[in-house]
Design a protein around this nucleic acid. Sequence first.
DNA 1: ATATATTTTTAGATTAGTCTAAAAATATAT
DNA 2: ATATATTTTTAGACTAATCTAAAAATATAT
Lengths: 221, 221
Amino acid sequence: MTLTEENYIKAIYQLGKYGTLNVSTNSIAEALDTKASSVTDMIKKLDEKGYANYKKYQGVILSVEGKKIAANIVRKHRLWEVFLVEKLNFAWDEVHDIAEQLEHIKSEKLINELDKLLDYPTHDPHGDPIPDKLGDIKKTDKILLFNLEENTSGVCVGVKDTSSAFLRYLDKHNIALGSEITVLSKEDFDDSMVIKIQDSVMSISQVVANNLFVKQLSQKN
Amino acid sequence: MTLTEENYIKAIYQLGKYGTLNVSTNSIAEALDTKASSVTDMIKKLDEKGYANYKKYQGVILSVEGKKIAANIVRKHRLWEVFLVEKLNFAWDEVHDIAEQLEHIKSEKLINELDKLLDYPTHDPHGDPIPDKLGDIKKTDKILLFNLEENTSGVCVGVKDTSSAFLRYLDKHNIALGSEITVLSKEDFDDSMVIKIQDSVMSISQVVANNLFVKQLSQKN
DNA sequence: ATATATTTTTAGATTAGTCTAAAAATATAT
DNA sequence: ATATATTTTTAGACTAATCTAAAAATATAT
Ligand SMILES: [Mn+2]
Ligand SMILES: [Mn+2]
Ligand SMILES: [Mn+2]
Ligand SMILES: [Mn+2]
């Protein structure tokens, strides 16, 4: 398994919702910043090697074997992200690129010991679940803040956009994983909303609301 | 800088005593388990890029730039080895291959934070010195146990052979970095010696004595 | 000094991954 | 249904790194 193959497998896994959906050639090309023709070559190879199922013009989906490999790469990526934040004082917007490198390090023992050192975390710094050793992922019932009704509350549990720009916006406005958010009002005109977050009130745009995951809290009495 | 270029630069650095000596094509080929013809191609390229000075048939030596790069790779390698032993419960014979992978991870901040987490270690688990940020290395006056005179003592400070086989031999016989060793007698016939180590007495072969570095202790009174 | 052995380089081929440009298939719009 | 647009594949070329086999240079031994 080459580094390049791993990157393709991971992209197919992520684009296809943890390996459950077919993925198009172009979407892979965009995700990996490469050309569609390169993707065609690679998905043919992944099919031949048994990591994926590919039918011409029909896109590609991972095999059971491929899904296992992908989940393990994602597991490593997310554990390393936790390590960087928890042990090496990185901010949550600084870890992704380094984790992209670290996820390819090959050592079963290394990742198991890292898991132990970090006390078996279940989620990465962006709220994404960490697959277990078998590749299984704990599903959470998170929804986009955008879909939270007026006068209901939720706890911030993840981000959809993981760009530095967005993460620093959240930092600046004291929005962090674990913050409790209440939707005070929604503005039909531009889909912005006014929220209460940790006792302060602010207005957020539709863009922000659509990139923040919350876990809904049971209705107020 | 590709991963392959880094491996060549490191090999030239190590084979040429931290970049001070000319290195032959064949010795690089042997170290990297590749063919001499491949080495010729690569050292030409390293010369062109300014990382080394190469004259046909005369071997190669690193440039100042090349030495800096090499020292940084070695620094990363050895810091990761300390991390694996100190934080992830690896034995000293298990860390080298993983460090070979980790040494190529690119992030200045990562390595600085790792250094801090480990409390700025000066030596790796095998007793080898860790270059500082500038690539400078603290020289120690270690000698091979083989060269220690009868009735003198030394503290074990490093190993020359870092193979699992040798390291586990040392573990088995309770020889570790920091152990105090006294040479009780030397056998001319096979160059073996009898030593006292931590109050127990044992005989070691010439092979062992030639792969163990000690720091000589001031003569007994 | 000359022959022999060893080391190093060159020449040419191979593989993984990539690209551009053109052709083929599929999707969309009227 | 047909034309048009988009997506995907194919064909052929390129680069980095590698190899084998042969040629050239250097080192060693008598
Ligand atoms: Mn990430
Ligand atoms: Mn993440
Ligand atoms: Mn090592
Ligand atoms: Mn070491």
